[in-house]
Design a protein around this nucleic acid. Structure first.
Lengths: 225, 225
DNA sequence: AAAAATCTGTTGTATTTACAACGCAACAAT
DNA sequence: ATTGTTGCGTTGTAAATACAACAGATTTTT
């Protein structure tokens, strides 16, 4: 029996499925392991995608090409990461982007139809797998929605307050720690870092909030908008 | 046997499931129909949600309350519309928003656990239902991701080109029709309508594109960026 | 057909934001 | 202690955007 890299066990698609069971599940799904050379295509735009990919080692780039042929790297998927799940599950006929091995990589491809259509009752983990897939999609959905809520606000301050308000609510407390550096927060909210920094300074001066590093505190006066 | 409103058959959760079959499926899921008075809560923030909702008649508002108690209506769900699917499928412990009946409405609630855990082989449409749910989540995922791609671009022109490039690619053609009015497009891209309009005018003057109303044409010169 | 309402493009001005440059503090390596 | 490095805040200026107001076109209503 093959040993899988630890990254695979961390893949959210397989939570709740332990060592030996995972192996038989993967056999049942007839998942296959493939090696990709650096820069080679895992999925090519315009193809139909029927599988989800899981990076076992190396890394993959999600690459988009616009109408004029300009390429953009939208994301990098690390070992243990999942990709293509939305396109495979949506049953899209034409992939609007490509996936390229960022370096020599081993990637597992699992046919999505096999995940969704329960096989014979033989493999008892199938229902769990479906739930996991659903959870992955739903969770990503929530994250994307939240990001959109912040990012659609007009103006630096509104975006910041939208984000900080959410963090305070999640923490259940007026002071809380955020998981971003300034640059990362600026990128997340689609803002200029220095403009964001000075806006934060202004808000501090106006008594709306306090902060140092990643620790923020929203003050009572901040509720005016 | 009850007759369901036509809206229910249009619900993407039930595509491929016709009249009589849908009824037995709903019985199998022990879906229940509830009447809600205007302004009454369907789901309340902080609760755990275990069901997805389908609006049979009337309408529902997705309402968010920020840290200071300011309410925002994020969306309105019309008859036939689905809500709560992401939260229910993700198994979230605490709903970060509320759903309120916008007017007197009839709403069907379906327990999500029942959807995900196949019952006895008795109801053959269960697998299809699961696929549909997956498709709904995956499709929304794709829409949200695309929106984020446009909206994170910095500057009016970059947002417009990102959006228009995608539309051209989808149409497979340099000229195409968009499904938005100017105001709607501005809202979608988080821009000011008039600023967007003048940017479009500037781009036209520079020979990047042509347009009239909802019909656009990207010109060869537009590939510089 | 006339009137009203809506959508769109245009312009000028006020405001906001991006950009570039720099200083300072915290931290790591030497 | 010294030297880099990195992250953060600040400032001034240039550029982009929001806002308001209006005019022409188009569509809907009467």
């Amino acid at each position: 029996m093959k040993i899988y890299p630890p990254a695979l066990y961390d893949c959210p698609l397989f939570t709740g499925i332990a060592g030996e069971d995972l192996h038989s599940l993967l056999v049942c799904l007839s998942a296959n392991r493939n090696n990709f050379a650096r820069e080679s295509f895992v999925f090519r735009a315009e193809e139909k995608v029927e599988s989800v990919g899981i990076v076992l080692s190396g890394g993959a780039h999600i690459v988009q090409e616009d109408f004029w042929g300009n390429r953009t790297i939208l994301a990098r998927i690390e070992a243990g990461g999942l990709f293509g799940e939305a396109f495979a599950c949506a049953g899209l006929e034409k992939l609007p982007l490509s996936v390229v091995a960022a370096e020599a990589s081993e990637i597992m491809l699992v046919n999505c139809g096999r995940i969704l259509s329960p096989c014979t009752a033989a493999c008892s983990f199938h229902a769990l797998l479906i739930k996991n897939m659903m959870r992955v999609l739903a969770h990503k959905n929530i994250l994307l929605t939240r990001k959109i809520e912040h990012i659609t606000r007009r103006g630096t301050r509104a975006k910041l307050l939208s984000y900080l308000s959410e963090q305070a609510t999640l923490a259940g407390c007026a002071d809380f720690t955020i998981p971003f550096s300034r640059q990362e927060l600026a990128d997340f909210l689609a803002l200029d870092r220095s403009a964001m920094s000075s806006e934060l300074g202004r808000m501090r001066d106006e008594g709306l909030l306090r902060f140092s590093r990643n620790r923020f505190e929203l003050l009572p006066g901040s509720c005016v908008r």
